[in-house]
Every structure is written in C-alpha cells, then in structure tokens.
Amino acid sequence: MAERLVVAAACSSPEILGANLARSPLLGAGVALHEEWNAASAAQAYNRALDATTASVVILAHQDVYFPAGWERLLATRIAEVATADPNWGLIGAFGVGLDGAHIGPVWSSSLGMIVGRVPMAPVPVQSFDEMVIVLNRASGLRFDESLPGWHMYGTDIVTQARERGLGAWAVGLPCIHNDRYHEALGPDYVDCYRAMQRKWSARLPLVTPITKISRSGLHLRRDLWRARRSAGFRAGMAVGTEIAAEDLARRCGWLDLGASA
C-alpha cells in the first residue's frame, strides 16, 4: 500500500512541520512526504503537489497534523470500504460535514481541546471537509480551483466539485491529531473566501462547512463572526497548548497504534 500513497503538505514553518507531520510513523514505513513551500494559496500548493507526484492516492495534510502508527494500514481498510460502495470515489476525509449537517470524525483538535466528530459505522457522504486531511483519488482527475483566494474553504469547494461531477466524497473513521493553534477570530481572508464561494456556487447553496453555512444572504457569516468574538475567552480556555508532543496527544486519545484497528 505504501507505494500507492504520498503525503503532500503546504508548508510555512519548519518547526511546526518537524514537530507534527514529519514525525508521523507512516513516513518511516515507506510513504513519501512532498513539501510545497511559499505558495500563494492552498489551491496552488496542492495543484503543484499533484503535478509533482505520481502516487495513485494523495494524502493532502496540514503541517500540524500527526498520523499515529498504523494510520496508513487503517486508511487501506477505509479505502476498501468506500470502494465497495463507490468504485469511482473521488475524495475521503478524516473530518467532514454530512449531508444532514452532522460532524463526522473522530479527530483530536488542540485548538478545541477535545476529540471532535461522530464516529461513523460506515462511510458517510459529505458536503464539505475540514482541510486538515483530504485523501484524493488521482484517477478522479480532481484539482483545486486556483481562482479561489487564500487558505479557507477549499475543502468545501473540492467536495462540491466532486459532487457536481458525480464523484463520491466520503468521511470515514481515520483518527488523527490536529495540533492546531488557537485562533481568536475569523479574519478578513476568511470573509474573502466566503464571498468567493457564494459567487462560485450560488446555484448549489446553501453549503455547510465545518465552521459556518454558506448561504445566499450571508447572514450565517455575520452571525458566526459575532459568535467567534463573543466566545473568544471561553474557547481560549478550552484550547490545549501545541507544545505537547504529538505522540503524547495520540497516546492520551488511545490512538497510539491504529494498526490494531485496521
């Protein structure tokens, strides 16, 4: 399986990369890591990665993600489960929003200080992914839209592209660690991405992302910006510092070796 996989990451910090993704045991098990530095957007970084690699399954991961031991074997099991129902699948994610709006995981989030997402008993079709981990089937021909700005909502965009083309996008049980830093508020770059998605997918709205709902009116964005400001202190108290070793977080979650679950 390892030769069929490549991990690709858009990188900005050698320290964050080295403390998290680059420590993942699967890299020592024969899975290559492809790094993209200094990209103008997530879409640009990931398209570069697709062009520079040849593996049939591309694991697009944030630099602050850690894959516990055995994750690649569990992924092989999950791909087989998806392929049974959907031989021409396009995308698989570790955390997604189901068609009913349910959050499907489970994954650890340091910024929230908890495991988030419902454990699926079988692959669940989704309308969006958290961008922390997106597994792309190269045979699908899917690519990221470089006209979209910045570093937000490309997980919703690529899923919507797949669904429009009749390709499956699924959330499955792939526990992993997102050792992400606490963010006080959603910034102007997030608003820019929201507006771009409103324009691009106006005929398919509403779309529910892990953070907000993209609607024609935009009322949900204004509500969620206000909620983020109001809850900043509470969320800061929930967050866990990223100085905790990724392996220790995996141990505390009971995910030290996922190979036994595969």
Rank of each mutant, 00 (worst) to 15 (best):
A260I: 05
L75E: 07
L256C: 01
Y154F: 15
E131R: 04
F129W: 10
A246T: 07
G168F: 00
A250W: 06
V107R: 03
R227V: 11
E243A: 15
R23V: 07
I134K: 14
G18C: 14
W37F: 11
Q63P: 06
A69N: 09
A239G: 13
N47K: 05
A8Y: 08
E35Q: 15
A239H: 12
L91M: 13
A171R: 02
A185C: 06
Y46A: 01
L249H: 00
R252I: 07
G241V: 05
H183P: 01
G113F: 08
A19P: 01
G70S: 10
P188E: 15
R204N: 13
E81D: 15
V65W: 01
G237T: 04
T160G: 04
G96P: 02
G98S: 13
C253A: 12
G233A: 06
H62C: 11
V58R: 12
D248K: 13
S24F: 04
I79V: 15
P14R: 15
S217R: 13
E3L: 07
V126Q: 13
D64W: 07
R181S: 14
W37S: 07
L99C: 09
L249S: 02
A246G: 13
M238A: 11
A61S: 15
N47P: 06
D51K: 14
V126I: 11
V7L: 10
V57F: 03
M114T: 14
A122F: 00
A232N: 00
D145C: 05
A185I: 07
L26W: 03
G233L: 03
A236E: 13
A94D: 03
V159E: 06
A232E: 02
M121L: 08
H34C: 08
L50E: 04
P120K: 05
A260C: 03
L21R: 01
A122I: 00
R195F: 07
A185Y: 05
A245L: 15
A169C: 13
L74N: 08
D100H: 11
W89K: 15
S56R: 14
R235M: 08
N47Q: 08
T53N: 11
I134G: 08
E146V: 09
V240L: 14
A55C: 07
G113K: 06
R181L: 12
A43L: 06
A262G: 08
E184S: 10
A246P: 03
R4I: 05
R118S: 13
F67E: 00
S24M: 09
R4P: 10
C11Q: 05
D130A: 11
P14T: 13
V58G: 12
A232L: 02
C176I: 04
A239M: 12
V133N: 03
A45Q: 06
K200N: 05
I158F: 04
L219P: 00
V172H: 04
I244S: 01
L142M: 09
